[in-house]
Design a binder for these strands. Structure first.
Lengths: 156, 156
DNA sequence: CATTTTGACTATCTCTGACTATTATTATAA
DNA sequence: TTATAATAATAGTCAGAGATAGTCAAAATG
């Protein structure tokens, strides 16, 4: 059974592409369309459309309220990478890391193979020997260092 | 009477052939089908679908979670990689790791950018939070998993 | 003894709902 | 008319329930 969150995520990303970088929705309406509670929309947004992941979200309550999601403009891959690197904190979960990496592919900053390598390097599987409480720190360090390495070399 | 683990192994391998190299299952569902505890699935996977045997395993918990198993490539580059992967022991120093990676580039198995990423992911700098005596183990795990990801058969 | 099977406990991710906060609109009072 | 209060229409938060998978060591098996 596919996750509802993934479906909603895809739906929104589709809209964003259609609308060339921005989308505006009403929370209740969207929740209604997908037969879920409104707060699930917040969940999707907070796990998939955060600022660090390259999205800018605004909203307004009250009558005629809305949520708008904008995809950040990326004209320089290097700038974008630096932005991401500084915004990644000292710790990151495997899932969040994967979402980041997928975004890099979406933004054409890395190739699919490169994404696979990065995911392989930051998976929990590989960090079993790291004490649990340090795992997310090490992962963040790995991810950031890999990204740093990309700011040095141009993509063919 | 054949062991349950063997039966499950055969079942999964059959699926992998049918699906041309990759299969995605739900642990509980599979355990249910074979009337065993879920953790037996982990046992089967960890004893029969290891990297050395040519499989790449990923998983995700939570609602809609899954376990995916991918068969690895057996072409010459894949062979070479598998050979390397098995020859890398459980531990590897940063220096040795770099030598390996440089060789991959020389043998045209990976791109320059990919090499940069791999070196970044296996540098000592990134493993400062790992206890010294575990550092080379973690590095070996990272390197092997990255190499393995390259041997995965892609579909799509 | 080595391997397999089991189950209790843990970790992670998703979904839900009650409660809260904010904004817009309408009604009421001055 | 203008200021204020009440009401309606949204969205936000957070903790807990639900749905998975992972780990590890003891028990069973052969």
């Amino acid at each position: 059974m596919a996750r509802l969150s993934d479906i909603i995520e895809e739906f929104l990303k589709g809209l964003i592409i259609e609308e060339e970088g921005t989308v505006e929705i009403q929370r209740n309406e969207l929740a209604n369309r997908f037969n879920c509670v409104p707060s699930q929309i917040n969940y999707v947004i907070s796990t998939r459309f955060t600022a660090e992941k390259g999205y800018y979200v605004e909203s307004r309550r009250g009558g005629g309220g809305y949520i708008s999601i904008k995809r950040l403009n990326v004209d320089s891959a290097g700038d974008y990478l630096m932005h991401i690197i500084t915004s990644i904190g000292d710790r990151i979960s495997q899932l969040t890391s994967e979402v980041f990496i997928n975004n890099f592919v979406d933004y054409n900053i890395i190739e699919n193979r490169e994404a696979m390598i990065m995911k392989a390097a930051t998976s929990d599987k590989v960090l079993t020997d790291v004490p649990t409480d340090k795992r997310d720190d090490v992962r963040a360090a790995i991810l950031k260092n890999m990204l740093m390495s990309l700011t040095v070399i141009k993509r063919r």
